[in-house]
Design a protein around this nucleic acid. Structure first.
Length: 499
RNA sequence: GCGCCUGUAGCUCAGUGGUAGAGCAUUCGACUUUUAAUCGAAUGGCCGUUGGUUCAAUUCCAACCAGGCGCACCA
C-alpha cells in the first residue's frame, strides 16, 4: 500500500469512527456567532487580563490547518480563509463525545468550536473550547504545512489546494477582486454605463487575432468566441449610449505565455466626444486611482523594478521610439523618411536581423522594429502614441498624416497594458480598411480582420467622434500584485488535458 | 510551432550503472499551555510512460506524456 492509499484509508477510518459515535458526518449547517476574522480583528489587541475579565464567549468554525495534540489536551489552528485562530482542547473542559471527536480529526477537516477567548502562556489569542462540532472531513492528505505547495502545475490544476495552503496566492485573488471593483467604481463614477455584449459572434471582429470556433446546433450555425467586444460597444455608441464599458472575457486562439492566456479579461470602454488625448489623461488617472484603492499605493515593485504609477505618464511617439532605438543600435542616423519608405524600412529591419513578411508595408515594419527594440524597456508607465495606419484598421487617421492614426498603447513593466484610439467613424474609409485586411487575409494571415457589413451600416447611421480603449485587466493585476506570470492571476488558467 | 530545463514517497527535496534517501505528513507509544510542539519506534516508492544499450538502468540513449522558461504569434 502506498503512503497515499494509507493516509486516505486512515482518514476514511476516522470518518467511520466519527459516524459510529452517532454524529451526522455531513451536517447541513452550523451557525457561527463570529467569523475567525471578526474575532481576531476585535480582540487581537486585548491583553490576557482583559480577556479574563470580559469572558468573551464565541461560536466559530473553520478548516484545521494544524493539529498539535499531547495526550489529554491539544491545540488546533483554524482558518476561515481570512484569518487564523488557535483552539485549545482539554479533555476535562468538554463533553467526552467532543474529546473523542478531537481524537479523530485530521489536518484539513472542517470543525465548529464553542468556547471562551483567552491568551496562552505564550500570549497567543486562543479559544478555550467547551464544545467541538464536526462539520466535514478532508479525505485526502493536504500539502505540507511548512514548504506548502510549490509545484506550479499542481497549483494551477488544483487551485483549491494552492488557496488552502498558500496565503500569498489567496491574497493575489483578493487583490484582483478589489482591482476590478475599483475599476468598476471609477468608470461608474464617471457616468459610464456597464453593458454586456455577445461572447458568441458570427464574425470575430474588433481585434487582429485568430478566434475559437463553436457551433450552434438548432440554428446550425458556426459562431466565434469573441476576440473583442469593440464592434458591439461602438454599435451602442451609435445607438446613443455615450459612455459604455464592459469588463469581461475575450478569447484568442493563440500561443500561451507568461503574458497570454487564451481567455483573458479586458476592460473595454467608449466615450462619445472624446479623442485619444482625452483617453490618455483618463487612463493615467484610472490606473493611479485603482492602485491606490486596491493596494493603497501608486509606488509598486514589479520583479526587479520600482515603478511609479503616479500620473502623468511619459508620452513617446512610436515612430520616434523606433527611429531612435534603430539609430542607436545601428550607430547611424535613421530618419523618419526611412521608416515611412517600405524599402528603406525593410533594409533597416534586415540590418537589425528582424523578420519581415513580403506583404508588410513601412508601417508594419516600423511597428516590428519598435516591438523588438523598445517594448521590453518601457518599464515606467509610457503612452506610445501615433501608430501606423497599416496596423490599426479601426482607428482614425491624423488630419495631416494619413499614414498615422490617433492611437496609443500604454506600456508598464515592459508589456502592453492598454490600447486606445480615436475611433474611425467614416464608413467609406472603414470599408477600405476592411478590404485591406481582406487582402492580408487572402495572403494567409488568419488573424486579419473580416468584413463586417452590419458594422459599416451602423457607422452609416452616424458614430459621433468617439474615443475607445481596452485595458488588459489580468496584466494590470500582474503589475499590482507583483506576479511574473498571467497564470498567477487567473484562478484556473488553461492547461492541457491530462488523463 | 522551435530551443533549453524539469518530472524520485501525500508534500518539499537529496542521490546513484549493482536491492532507494531525508524532513514534514501517516501509524503506534509517552505527554493537560503548544505554535514548524517534543521524545521513542514503525510504515510508506513501477524513480513520468514506452522502447533501446548493458550481465545489470531510477541513473546512459531515443521517442512520447505533462509542466516551466525563452523565442514566435499576440493583449
Amino acid at each position: 500500500m502506498t503512503s497515499l492509499d494509507e493516509q486516505i484509508l486512515q482518514r476514511r477510518t476516522n470518518l467511520d469512527e466519527l459516524s459510529k459515535l452517532g454524529l451526522e458526518i455531513y451536517p447541513r449547517k452550523f451557525e457561527r456567532r463570529h467569523t475567525i476574522a471578526e474575532l481576531v480583528e476585535a480582540h487581537v489587541q486585548r491583553t490576557h487580563d482583559e480577556l479574563e475579565g470580559d469572558r468573551i464567549e464565541t461560536i466559530t468554525g473553520g478548516r484545521i490547518l494544524a493539529i498539535r495534540a499531547f495526550g489529554k489536551a491539544g491545540f488546533l489552528v483554524l482558518s476561515d480563509g481570512h484569518a487564523k485562530i488557535q483552539v485549545y482542547i482539554r479533555m476535562d473542559s468538554m463533553p467526552e463525545l467532543d474529546f473523542k471527536i478531537h481524537q479523530l480529526l485530521d489536518f484539513g477537516d472542517w470543525v465548529g468550536v464553542e468556547g471562551r477567548l483567552f491568551r496562552t502562556k505564550t500570549n497567543e489569542l486562543t479559544i478555550w473550547a467547551s464544545r467541538l462540532h464536526f462539520l466535514a472531513k478532508c479525505l485526502l492528505p493536504l500539502p505540507e504545512k511548512w514548504h506548502g505547495l510549490t509545484d506550479v502545475e499542481t497549483r494551477y490544476r488544483q487551485r483549491y489546494l494552492d488557496l488552502i495552503v498558500n496565503p500569498d496566492s489567496r491574497r493575489v485573488f483578493e487583490t484582483r477582486s478589489r482591482i476590478i471593483a475599483a475599476v468598476r467604481e471609477f468608470m461608474t463614477a464617471r457616468g459610464y454605463l456597464e453593458v454586456e455584449t455577445p461572447m458568441m459572434q458570427p464574425i470575430a471582429g474588433g481585434a487582429i487575432a485568430r478566434p475559437f470556433v463553436t457551433h450552434h446546433n438548432a440554428l446550425d450555425m458556426d459562431l466565434y468566441l469573441r476576440i473583442a467586444p469593440e464592434l458591439y460597444l461602438k454599435r451602442l455608441t451609435v445607438g446613443g449610449f455615450e459612455k459604455v464599458f464592459e469588463i469581461n472575457r475575450n478569447f484568442r486562439n493563440e500561443g500561451i505565455s507568461t503574458q497570454h492566456n487564451p481567455e483573458f479579461t479586458m476592460l473595454e470602454f467608449y466615450e462619445a466626444y472624446a479623442d485619444y488625448q482625452a483617453l490618455m489623461r483618463m487612463t493615467e488617472e484610472m490606473i493611479a486611482t485603482v492602485a491606490r484603492r486596491a493596494i493603497g499605493t501608486e509606488q509598486i515593485v514589479f520583479g526587479d523594478h520600482q515603478i511609479s504609477l503616479q500620473a502623468p505618464f511619459a508620452r513617446l511617439s512610436l515612430r520616434d521610439a523606433a527611429r531612435e532605438a534603430a539609430s542607436r543600435r545601428l550607430n547611424r542616423e535613421v530618419t523618419d523618411a526611412d521608416l515611412r519608405t517600405r524599402d528603406a524600412a525593410a533594409a533597416i529591419a534586415a540590418h537589425l536581423a528582424l523578420e519581415v513578411d513580403p506583404g508588410d508595408g513601412a508601417g508594419k515594419i516600423t511597428t516590428t522594429i519598435f516591438e523588438a527594440l523598445c517594448e521590453d524597456r518601457l518599464i515606467q508607465p509610457t503612452f506610445v502614441y501615433d501608430l501606423p495606419t497599416e496596423v490599426s484598421p479601426l482607428s482614425k487617421q491624423k488630419p495631416d498624416d494619413p499614414d498615422t492614426v490617433e492611437r496609443f498603447e500604454l506600456y508598464i513593466g515592459g508589456f502592453e497594458v492598454a490600447n486606445a484610439f480615436s475611433e474611425l467613424n467614416d464608413p467609406a474609409e472603414q470599408r477600405r480598411r476592411f478590404e485591406a485586411q481582406l487582402k492580408d487575409r487572402a495572403g494567409g494571415n488568419l488573424a486579419a480582420h473580416e468584413m463586417d457589413e452590419d458594422y459599416i451600416r451602423a457607422l452609416e447611421y452616424g458614430l459621433p467622434p468617439t474615443g475607445g480603449e481596452g485595458v488588459g485587466v489580468d496584466r494590470l493585476v500582474m503589475l499590482l500584485t507583483n506576479s511574473p506570470s498571467i497564470r498567477d492571476v487567473i484562478l484556473f488558467p488553461l492547461m492541457r488535458k491530462r488523463e
